[in-house]
Design a binder for these strands. Sequence first.
DNA 1: CTCAGCCTTCTTTTT
DNA 2: GAAGGCTGAG
Length: 684
Amino acid sequence: MTGGPREEYELRPAGGASRIDYAAELNPQQLEVAMAGGGPLLVIAGAGSGKTRTLTYRVARLVETGVPPGAILLLTFTNKASSEMLARAETLLGGAVSAVGGTFHHAGHLALRRHGHVVGLPRNFTIADRDDAEDLLGECMEEQAAATDKRFPKPQVVLDMISMAANTLEPMKEVVTRRYPMHLDLLQELETWQGTYAARKMDLGIVDFDDLLTLWLRAMDQDAEVRSEFQRRFAYVMVDEYQDTNLLQAKIVDHLAAAHRNLMVVGDDAQSIYSFRGANFANIIKFNERYPDAKMFKLEINYRSSPEILALANASIEHNSQQYAKKLVSEQPPGPLPKLVPLERPDEQAAYLAQRIRDLENEGIDLDQIAVLYRSHYLSMELQLELSRRGIPFEIRSGIRFFEQAHIKDASSYLRIAANPMDELAWKRALRLLPKVGKATAAKIWAAVSKSKDPLGELSKKKLPAPKAAAAGMEDLARTMQAVLAQKDKPSAQLEAVLAGGFRTLLHDTYENANSRILDLETLAAYATRFQDTSQFLAELALYSNAVEPDTTGLPPERRLVLSTIHQAKGLEWQAVFVPWLVEGRFPDARALGEGSDEEERRLFYVAVTRARRHLELTYPLFAREGQYPSLRQRPSRFIEELPSRLVMLVHVNRAWGPAPRPEADVDPDDTDRWMDGKSPYDE
DNA sequence: CTCAGCCTTCTTTTT
DNA sequence: GAAGGCTGAG
């Protein structure tokens, strides 16, 4: 192994040959990072501090100093981040960079296609998305006579636990004790399900999202050849959003960098917001313990927000105890004070937001430069109604994902069967599309078919345990599958075959908007032409599950207001940002608080406010419905209460303003008995 | 056994 | 306002 750390690609000065004037285009802090040599580097990049720019210039710099682009591995958190960064590096260098970049899951997928056999995976494994995984786990649980038992948590919950164990590398016992103590009495069962679920996936040649990382790590752990191949291939490893990596990912990174130690991790501890899915805050906070010789850099100059907005952000995050000391300094001219706006009720809040959005638009701010960022998706309900009523166009970043829609998954299940005839989930999905075939019949047919070495061959035989009513459907399926198989590894043609083989008709029979769904599938087929391998195409579908819906209208994109969760807004910025629902229980979220300290929620608040460039407004309702209680006085969020009052401008909104005002004590007389049971902890 | 329709419930964040 | 559970008809 060419293990030689820094010898392998000795950094040489770019000299006069460089087409980039680094010193002119980067600030001194950024420049240091871009020009730093090899070895472990920790970059604390504050919000809006030009992190992507800095990383881009570093990639360019490495390439200019002789590192082959293919030897640079850039691991990111989202597909968007990696493609953006690579694209910018290419522009910078004026040519294809071909550095290897992508999400951890993407890299894990490529690694397993190559080396999966080391850990017992067949070459044609298929990827199960979250829904599939839940189904499969549900079946494992049912086999243990569990699903019907009401004591047992739902597969959804159990999968959360299994996933948490995988991502934190903790034994199930630890996960249950720490995060699900109410289920401790079920530990035995949970461990059994965990085991059968893992075994079942292996049998069927199915991997879930977590397996893409778990098995990748296992392959490197077990096989020195595999390990050193990665270490040789990627002489420089960079990790973006390091604060959101979990222990599993950290281990993978440690393996990759073990030989050469050319590891640069970039992140902002103040923006660590993914502990709910196992992110390990300690990865970044204690990086120096694992890499004592690491050099640390800080990017603290903020190019995005006004000093007023940063003052608020800095003041808020100060309440967290665990963090690297840093203070964002604004490069922007002074702006208006952030506004704090209490409203009477959620309806008034929505009306206020809509009105202010119109105001800002009239002041010359484009709609797509305005965002409403909320803690949880359901908090946008009233606002959506209000915006529709007023005809303000908006787009929601979240919700239904294109590739997760039923018709997309249904159609691709045929391709999955073709790629991996043992894919039980795909079989059942395809079978259940047939008339008169439901859960039970599908299971029977699968049981019969899966006994054979050639499940697909069984399909054409007439002996399957299908009811007479389903016979015609079975024939259709057999015929369609033949057509799909005939187009081996041409996913586009395969999709066309599915459509032609009765799926088009099926959609018309099932959905009112069949035509738009057919159009979706035709668009997908067009997109699929770039793949020469059905497995690759299917993996892409699973891994890019939140890719934006392809534009089938052909119309120019409208300028729209953005509605988004804060999680999805990370890394983005807008001229004006509204953060509604700042009351205890909603933001901070009651459930999230239950998991421990409020520091992650505060970081979420920090992320939200640092998205704003010039206008920031924080709003909350004084009264709101809570479950069966139609109107309870709300307590303003601690994130508001703890702010020094000089940092915000308190705005009082005339109650007569907005939609029809309601009586103060808005209690339905018929509901009073609910108030009588004395159980409400909220009475004030 | 399927499937439609009516019920309740409970609203987190996602590769 | 979606999704899951439950019921009853075919």
